[in-house]
Design a protein around this nucleic acid. Structure first.
Lengths: 376, 376
DNA sequence: CGCGGCGACGCAACCGATTGTTTACTCTCA
DNA sequence: TGAGAGTAAACAATCGGTTGCGTCGCCGCG
């Protein structure tokens, strides 16, 4: 955290230059060679032989399944420990018709604003999977190209899959259903046929909007959000809930929703229009978009929140250095990933998992909106 | 790209609510059951039996290795095609002592500014791996915790590994060396023992700095960059190269380097100091940092580039909406990932891969620096 | 003393492929 | 006609585990 001012004098070497040696090719077994004590890749058979027992016994000692004497089991475990043997998971998989891998589908063409989400989600998934002895295999899906997912599934490389984004028309989901591969969706799905885990975007958006109305605002705009994403619909529902509870258009509430905005140029145009129409608050669907909006307002010398309020979703560190500080909705995305992974394991274990799991959120009210710093 | 203004009337359903059914548990083989034409999970044995040949023949027909008659091979292939059989890669792996997986090590605690880099790098890796019939297994490493990597390696889940960031003291690299796992580093390494692929950050930074000097600047500051990252050192080398070629301090060149800056608060302090010291240009190590710098300058009403110039690395879309447009250095990160993956395959195939591969860059000069829009 | 029962463990088949060795067959040429 | 060469395909072992079933020894009990 501390800064380290240094002068340009050559404190660092450089990384360019010569050809180098490379790492040895993975040494495979050759038990008869004596030198170099190459005792890697011990097998269950080796252990059995060394201990004068059968492979079965070793297998049972390790798995804990099946009857086995305490003493024998102790001997096996001690040997295993001493030689730090670890079983060949591929072979175990073959015998048990499992892979001990889960697949994760990531959009390869995701907007920059979604990156922190996926990063944290992956972190939750990887940690949970790892703790359960599973590894994580990744498939990047771009547009309609789900070939990486298809390969992973066709190759039987995964026991189940986690989808990290849901679309209203979701190609990966359709594929997984067709192939009868167990999966969990992070994000809601249009139907309720799938096991899904999501933050409660509907309530989150409603709570934020309620707060704005409570401050006396009457004209609120929503900007951004891809209409193909299910999450966009959830938020709109929450927004609408709030509007309706205020009496809607009849009560003088004005709303303006502009979806599918992502590039800076369009943002500028939309913001200009919103300003012209005397919008009182712009709710942005993500923090990067929000950054664009703030830039535009700043370039136009329009004061936030005095002349217009601005709020956002995700509360990522991107906006951290902004003045004024930005009102945003925070989600625990790592928890989301963890939960999704747990649900998948439930399914894999044959325990029926709950269909929908809704996780919470936190509305962080700061200066840019809902703080009462403007007359509204 | 077009915006779609819609009114808040309920056009979307919502994703919250009821419990749902779940996807079927992965149907395992039960060949005797007649209904439901469950003919999945065909094995090589099934095909052999159906065609009245041996498993060997089927295997040879598919792999193309070993002698086999044209007609027989045709029959097998036709059957395979018709029933769209695909071999069990796990079993193939067992027999061949391979996994057809590569591991990718990702930092789990990466700064938000690095996310686009990792995203694109992954994309390049996944695409290349997929095209070669490999799947990608991910291990997230946080701090010194490399347990996920250790599991993947101990479980023999990967044939080789790609490191997506290199540190001067790199725990994953040390581990892979110790275990003699083939690996390729994205990013340079301190020694030249490893196969590595990197953009030419040294030349890139030098070219940018040269340009600034050519415009008559005499006091340039570098801000950001984690000193544990090897890439930071490479850039500093390039910076130093440029300074030295101008005659250095004796020729009146002034430099200021502040590493390890990442939080907004510190950026503010540093920027204030730099402004006070009449710095002529601030070169930021990444675009998010650059955003912070620009925010700070904007808050202080200091004009860019008239009063101070600003340049950055990575040229990501984050700064797209900025005024003035930002001078930045662009790298083809997907290409970087692709190249790293290709190198790894070379190693796995026993072909000796080149030790170091340096990829290019593009200095995108825009308004914020080096454009001649200031007296310098 | 004989027998049932039980706990501990081994045998061997199996998971789904690969692959070195053998066998069967055809063709050629002496 | 038969040996030798050459090709096509089958046999069986193997990769490193799991697991249903069988065996063995020991104990208690009638």
């Amino acid at each position: 955290m501390e800064n380290t001012p240094v002068f340009a004098a050559g404190i660092f070497g450089d990384g360019s230059g010569l050809q180098g040696m490379r790492c040895g090719s993975a040494g495979r077994r050759f038990k008869t060679e004596n030198q170099c004590m190459e005792e890697k890749n011990l097998t269950i058979g080796d252990i059995a032989q060394a201990l004068g027992v059968s492979k079965t016994t070793v297998s049972r000692a390790m798995s804990g399944k099946g009857r086995i004497g305490e003493e024998t089991r102790g001997r096996v475990l001690a040997y295993v420990e001493a030689h730090n043997y670890s079983p060949n998971v591929v072979a175990q998989g073959l015998a048990q018709n499992k892979t001990f891998n889960i697949g994760v589908v990531m959009p390869g063409d995701s907007n920059i604003s979604e990156l922190p989400f996926f990063q944290n989600c992956m972190l939750g998934i990887c940690r949970t999977a790892s703790a359960a002895g599973y590894d994580v295999l990744i498939s990047m899906v771009t547009g309609e190209d789900i070939s990486q997912l298809e390969r992973a599934v066709a190759n039987r490389k995964v026991d189940g899959v986690i989808l990290t984004r849901t679309l209203t028309e979701d190609a990966p989901m359709r594929y997984l259903r067709e192939k009868e591969v167990p999966f969990v969706a992070v994000g809601s799905t249009e139907d309720n046929e799938a096991v899904q885990v999501d933050n409660d975007h509907r309530s989150a958006c409603r709570e934020l909007t309620d707060r704005l109305f409570a401050q006396g605002l009457r004209k609120i705009a929503l900007i951004g959000g891809d209409e193909r994403f299910v999450v966009t619909g959830s938020r709109l529902s929450g927004f609408r809930d709030a509007v309706v509870s205020q009496g809607g258009a009849e009560a003088g509430i004005r709303t303006d929703i502009t979806l599918n905005v992502s590039d800076a140029r369009t943002v500028e145009q939309v913001v200009e229009r919103l300003v012209r129409e005397e919008t009182e608050c712009i709710v942005c669907m993500d923090d990067f978009l929000c950054g664009c909006v703030l830039n535009t307002l700043q370039n136009r010398q329009i004061a936030v929140p005095e002349q217009i309020q601005v709020a956002s979703f995700y509360d990522s560190t991107v906006l951290e250095s902004r003045l004024p500080s930005v009102t945003s909705i925070r989600f625990d995305v790592e928890e989301l990933g963890r939960k999704a992974c747990e649900q998948l394991f439930h399914i894999l274990n044959g325990e029926e998992a709950g269909g929908c799991t809704l996780l919470g959120y936190e509305v962080c009210v700061r200066e840019s909106a809902g703080s009462g710093k403007t007359a509204g």
